[in-house]
């Protein structure tokens, strides 16, 4: 009657796991993915397949043969990085550019820092921004939402709503905004753009799923969206020439995708509630600065990466509220 296992408390576990959290994010991305398929057709499937497969493969090969560790692809984090990278690409991007993006995301942005949990910057966004800088033409040539009628590479392309908004504000001419698609089309996702970012509505549904399953907390998405809404609303109300209405800013570009799925990346976001709120406000402000005055029409990726860099600082200065804190 011996040989019992002895270990310190606690002797039970919530049975939460990395894999379960990653799976929840993947599930939350699916509704928006369906809209992307309807909008852009085969290119979506091809880009996703290449991105996911290369990310998982790079992770496996590097951990197994270079780092000589037990490969960790079972936790689904590499799969999720691949999926998120794909969501941030146009559906007509040449396959080899997708592979390069996956390489930068997994090998340079994640594994070179020491693997899961160690990286400073969001891997999928590093991959995307690398592609944006390396292949600016392909990365900003957006296919029009014409569904399966379009084939992978030779799609007709057009301007995104954000480009229209940018032109309007540069010219200081609000009449240019008449070229914007209907607000409902922008909300649902029948517009040009990176294929995963277009359906603000279904990304929001996915985000609410993440909140309900406690995969993420409200702090980051709510503070980003409120900041963008507040700042763009202020510009609009104050009559800044060419400023678009705040609801256009909420549904345009990568804001919903960024707020719920990219900025909330566990590894690269702050550890405390207030830290996350400041981080979210920072992202919102930078997004509005870039959208209004920057060289690019869209700034969500850059905003998140810049605030990723501030995360260690926020962790150092913003502490959780201690129980029974004594003022010194």
């Amino acid at each position: 009657m011996s040989n019992f296992i002895v270990s310190p408390a606690p002797h039970v576990h919530s049975s939460d796991s990395v894999r379960r959290n990653m799976l929840n994010v993947i599930i939350a991305l699916l509704p928006a993915y369906v809209v992307s398929l309807i909008a852009f057709g085969w290119g979506v499937l091809i880009v996703t397949a290449i991105s996911v497969c290369s990310c998982v493969l790079f992770e496996y090969l590097i951990t197994r043969y270079v780092l000589r560790q037990q490969p960790t692809i079972g936790d689904l984090s590499a799969l999720l990085t691949g999926l998120l990278l794909a969501f941030n690409l146009p559906s007509n991007l040449p396959w080899w550019q997708v592979v390069i993006g996956a390489f930068v995301a997994i090998v340079i942005a994640k594994l070179s820092f020491g693997g899961l949990g160690q990286n400073i910057f969001n891997p999928a966004l590093v991959g995307r921004v690398f592609l944006l800088i390396a292949f600016p033409v392909q990365m900003t040539t957006w296919p029009l939402p014409k569904g399966f009628a379009t084939s992978y590479l030779d799609a007709t392309t057009g301007a995104t709503p954000l480009a229209t908004m940018k032109n309007a504000i540069k010219a200081g001419d609000a009449s240019l905004l008449d070229q914007l698609p209907e607000l409902w089309d922008m909300t649902l996702g029948m517009i040009g753009g990176s294929f995963g970012e277009v359906s603000a509505l279904l990304l929001l549904v996915g985000g609410i799923y993440l909140l309900c399953t406690k995969t993420i907390t409200w702090h980051i998405p709510v503070s980003i969206l409120l900041t963008v809404f507040g700042v763009s609303g202020l510009m609009y109300v104050c009559g800044m020439p060419g400023a678009a209405a705040p609801w256009y800013h909420l549904v345009a570009g990568g804001l919903m995708l960024g707020a719920f799925f990219m900025a909330t990346d566990y590894v690269t976001s702050p550890m405390t509630g207030w830290g996350q709120v400041i981080y979210g406000i920072g992202i919102g402000l930078i997004v509005m600065v870039i959208r209004t005055w920057g060289a690019y029409p869209e700034g969500v990726s850059f905003a998140i990466l810049i605030m990723n860099a501030c995360t260690p600082l926020l962790n150092m200065y913003i502490r959780p509220k201690r129980f029974g804190e004594v003022k010194k």
């Binding site: 990395v18 984090s77 899961l116 405390t272 502490r319 959780p320 201690r322």
Partner: peptide, 21 residues
């Protein structure tokens, strides 16, 4: 496995500490 810095321990601590740290 590796800490993924999800901050769930910070949210769970009833004394407001930072267990990961």
């Amino acid at each position: 496995a590796n800490c993924i810095r999800c901050a769930k321990c910070v949210g769970a601590c009833p004394m407001g500490l930072e267990p990961y740290l």
